[in-house]
Computed example of a mutant assay.
Amino acid sequence: MPIAMLAKAPAAGLRLAEVAEANRPTQLPLLARIAEMLATSESVTHLLVRGSLASGTADRLSDVDFVVGVHDRDLPAFTTALDDLMTIAGGALLPGWRDAIVADLGGVGFVYLVQHEGKLHQIDVYLAPASRISTIKGQTAAMVLLERPSAGITTTHIGQARHHLADLQGRPRTCTELLIEHLVLAVLLHKRIQRGQRFVAYAEWHRLHTATKDLIKAALAPTSRFWGWYRLREEVALTPIGRTCLADLDAAISSPAVPEAADVDAALNRVLELTRRACPHALDGLADAVAAYRTYMEMA
């Protein structure tokens, strides 16, 4: 679905005043811009905002957390077009990370990093079939920004949407996707450290190390039949590059259990060097984006 096809319907009816009334968040202009962009698509039937922006507890580090209801018939095409929409029209620095942390609500989540007022902000976009939205509203304390009629959804459409989501969730991640996961997790970790959220930082730090292991396996043992960390040395340490990558991984898992900001920065530097060494194609087309990302991280 090209971007031109996503921008047909007017963005009328967005109930942004309710969010503003909740707590006047500094992210409101960014929320409004992304909401208006998403609402221009005729495929979008619902826009919800959840998390701290919906509850009135947002701070300057809070992410903008959307649930986007998409007509079941259009979900595969909309998912395919989302990266282009968010990077070209939404100003995201990088393609989205397929969120592995978000709760399963019957859809799929993506995390984007968007520059706003000189800082990187996290935009969470959870795509869900329109047929699931009533259930999601009952499961979350989300605030409705937009609600349109979603008539014409057939059992065939629902089946197509479910099949698409199952295929997407089951597809192995590429080296590029795993590199983007590191970049997103580094932003999340800096946020946890600034807030003093040690337990969450511990969990996300372990997830970053796991992403490093997955990146090494995707680059050097893509046909591995072994799950997780099992037989990693036997599969990877067969070449000088593999042994160097495992040394990087050893340095990562030997770091403190709960990181400081300097630990996160060192891990990111290691991963970028590892990527250049083991799978340089993962950086194709991302050099400027990664440079901009690092500049914004230094300004944070």
Rank of each mutant, 00 (worst) to 15 (best):
L94S: 00
I88M: 14
V102F: 15
W97V: 08
A92R: 06
L82Q: 08
I101M: 11
V108F: 13
I101F: 14
R98A: 09
I88Q: 05
A103Y: 09
A92C: 04
A103L: 11
G107Y: 01
G90V: 01
A89K: 10
F110Y: 15
T80H: 15
G109M: 11
F110D: 00
V111D: 15
W97M: 14
L105S: 05
G91S: 12
L85G: 02
G96T: 01
L82E: 11
G96F: 02
V108P: 01
G96P: 06
L94R: 00
V102H: 14
A103H: 09
G106C: 08
G91W: 00
L93Y: 06
V111W: 12
A92D: 07
G109H: 03
T80P: 05
T87R: 11
I88S: 12
T80I: 15
T80N: 04
A89W: 12
V102R: 14
A81C: 10
D84N: 09
G109P: 08
D99T: 07
G96H: 00
R98T: 05
L85M: 14
T87Y: 01
R98Y: 06
G90K: 03
V111K: 10
I101G: 04
G109R: 07
L105T: 03
G109I: 10
V111C: 06
L85V: 07
M86L: 15
A100M: 09
G96S: 01
M86T: 13
D104N: 13
L94Y: 00
D83H: 10
D84F: 01
M86Y: 07
L93A: 02
L85Y: 10
L94T: 03
W97P: 00
L93F: 04
A81Q: 11
I88D: 05
V108L: 13
D104Q: 06
G109N: 12
V102Q: 04
G90H: 10
I88N: 03
